[in-house]
Nucleic acid binder design. Structure first.
Length: 527
RNA sequence: AGCAGUGUAGCUCAAUGGUUGAGCAGCAAGCUCAUAACUUGAAGGGUGUGGGUUCAAUUCCCACCACUGCGACCA
């Protein structure tokens, strides 16, 4: 029987520049949800990649005295290297310059054309090449500088463009939003789109002239297809199998529509308005939801090159490790809201949650086992532990609750729910004081307490594994498993959610490993 | 034009028409199985400002201020 499909995408990052923390953030979120759905046995396509066309890239390449293709070829390895460094397990890396993408774009364009949704008209206005968008004059800064790229001047354009009849889909889009309230998330983003659409949609231009880095419009090669029109289709091209003839029918046959598009709030309009309208025009299925995440803020400003306050993700990972990086951004920032990075906070949170609470709970408990029970290990029947055991009671419902959190992209709440169990573990072990019971000769009670805590740590590690695969692996290995959350076959039955997300799975038959700290504490940064 | 959101403990956030809660940080005590860890306790907030409704508002209403987002002013 075929597994249910789950397709999730990150934005296709613009290959104008090197990847940075703002590209890493949605990518780890996508990776976490992809890993989670794989654990549940879904047939996952996790799509990421690069958007490589457009005048901006052409100019950047010219400045660097390179061809656009050579420029992009240089950028792409940096993305792939960062993803590898961050343990990102993507299934597809689409480049919009991939050889099969052109065929998909042309076929799509033709379909929309045949639908009568494309026409030629005049476009006049101020164009920001960095945004690849027309701007209204009054939103510009002094001397015609773009408000977003304040070091760049906009350019006056007066040219023929092909237009897409977006206005025709106003009603259909409004129905879409009304009938699928979850289509745009979070709620605040949805409201923005609703009010924007309510203001009336205008057709938008989908071609440009006077440069050539992109796909020519079929039958009018003086025009280049607008970079956004091209890039969005990358989500579909990405689903083609290796060597498969590039047709829309083939691409969407199995893994389309995407369940979730993860995007930055800055590209919401393209994904929540233009994209579904384009798909409607081409009579293709619509994605399930568009989730707009927030920006990372530092010192009150959006992190970015232009503000000079960006954090280099490579340096952060080198210093603190992958899991710390992933955990901080997914746990400390509610997905969908803006979030800040402060190194002191980063260190405090990681030390408190992963080293002190989780890691130390495993360590303190596991060390008692050989000390009290020697090589025999614990002989405990989990099902015999009473339901009113507080850890068991909480653990029994945790898997389902955490699953809901992941489904809702509520990574922070997922972590909190898991930590509740961990914190209860520390309280429980203090209250029960197995070290005293052992000295009093109450061996059975001691074993039961230790098992209860170890099993809870296992469950926590399992549920955390989409976020902290390395720490979870270390915990599992100390508990006697041979799994590696980074290398297991994607649907290794031994890791299946149905068994592993349930409290009481740890077998007393398996021999436990030696206790070693699974997460070393960090030093606070010197001020 | 405007529309929307936010404003609660040092920090990040939660909650409710009726003595504000959590995590982190800081303070004190306890414990010893543990990664100087954990547990407990105290401390810390008249919930942006000013009005109003109500027996009672942080929670509802109005105005204002600050910040954020979307949008408009332009052509």
């Amino acid at each position: 029987m075929a597994s249910p499909i789950f397709t999730v995408t990150t934005p296709l990052y613009y290959a104008n520049d090197l990847p940075h923390i703002g590209t890493a953030y949605p990518t780890i979120a996508a990776d976490a949800i992809a890993r989670f759905e794989r654990l549940r046995g879904k047939d996952v396509r996790f799509v990421t990649g690069t958007d490589e066309h457009g005048q901006k890239i052409q100019r950047t390449a010219e400045e660097r005295c390179k061809t656009p293709q050579a420029h992009c070829d240089e950028m792409v390895p940096h993305f792939k290297a960062l993803w590898e460094k961050l343990d990102i397990q993507y299934d597809r890396f689409i480049r919009t310059t991939d050889s099969n993408h052109g065929a998909i774009v042309r076929e799509f364009f033709q379909r929309v054309w045949d639908r009568g949704d494309i026409y030629l008209s005049q476009q006049k206005g101020w164009y920001c090449v960095s945004c690849e968008e027309y701007k209204d004059e009054k939103e510009l800064l002094e001397d015609h500088h773009c408000p977003i790229h304040f070091n760049k001047k906009v350019e006056l354009r007066d040219e023929e463009n092909y237009f897409f009849r977006l206005s025709k889909y106003q009603g259909a889009l409004e129905d879409l939003y009304k009938n699928n309230p979850e289509f745009i998330q979070p709620e605040s983003r949805r409201n923005e789109v609703l009010s924007f659409v309510a203001g009336g949609l205008r057709d938008f231009s989908i071609s440009r002239v006077n440069f050539d880095w992109g796909f020519p419009v079929p039958n009018d090669p003086n025009h280049i297809i607008y970079v956004w029109f091209d890039a969005l289709l990358g989500y579909i091209t990405a689903l083609l199998e290796e060597g498969e003839t590039p047709t829309l029918a083939a691409a969407v046959a199995k893994h389309w529509p995407a369940h979730t598009h993860i995007i930055g709030k800055d590209i919401l309009r393209f994904h929540a308005i233009y994209w579904p309208a384009m798909l409607m025009s081409a009579e293709l299925a619509l994605p399930g939801r568009v989730f707009g995440h927030g920006f990372l803020i530092r010192d009150g400003a959006k992190m970015g090159k232009s503000s000079g306050n960006a954090i280099d993700p490579n340096a952060l990972v080198d210093r603190y490790g992958v899991d710390a990086f992933r955990y901080y951004f997914l746990k400390e920032i509610k997905f969908g809201q803006d979030g800040s990075f402060e190194e002191t906070r980063f260190v405090n949170i990681l030390n408190a949650d992963l080293a002190n609470d989780l890691g130390n709970l495993l360590n303190r408990t596991l060390k008692m086992v050989p000390k009290y029970f020697g090589a025999d290990g614990l002989k405990v029947d989990a099902s015999a532990i009473p339901m009113d055991n507080p850890m068991k009671a909480l653990g029994m419902t945790l898997g389902d609750r955490v699953a809901k959190c992941y489904e809702n992209m509520a990574f922070s709440e997922a972590c909190e729910a898991i930590l509740d169990l961990v914190r209860l573990g520390n309280r429980y072990i203090d209250e029960q004081a197995p070290w005293k019971l052992f000295k009093q000769g109450d061996i059975d009670a001691t074993a039961e307490i230790l098992y209860t805590v170890l099993e809870s740590v296992r469950l926590a590690a399992y549920l955390l594994s989409p976020i902290t695969p390395r720490v979870s692996t270390a915990i599992y290995q100390q508990l006697g498993y041979s799994v590696d959350f980074n290398n297991s076959p994607l649907r290794d039955i031994s890791l299946a959610f149905q068994t592993q997300a349930v409290w009481g799975t740890l077998s007393s038959e398996q021999s436990l490993g030696e206790a070693q700290p699974v997460f070393a504490k960090f030093e606070l940064p010197s001020v």
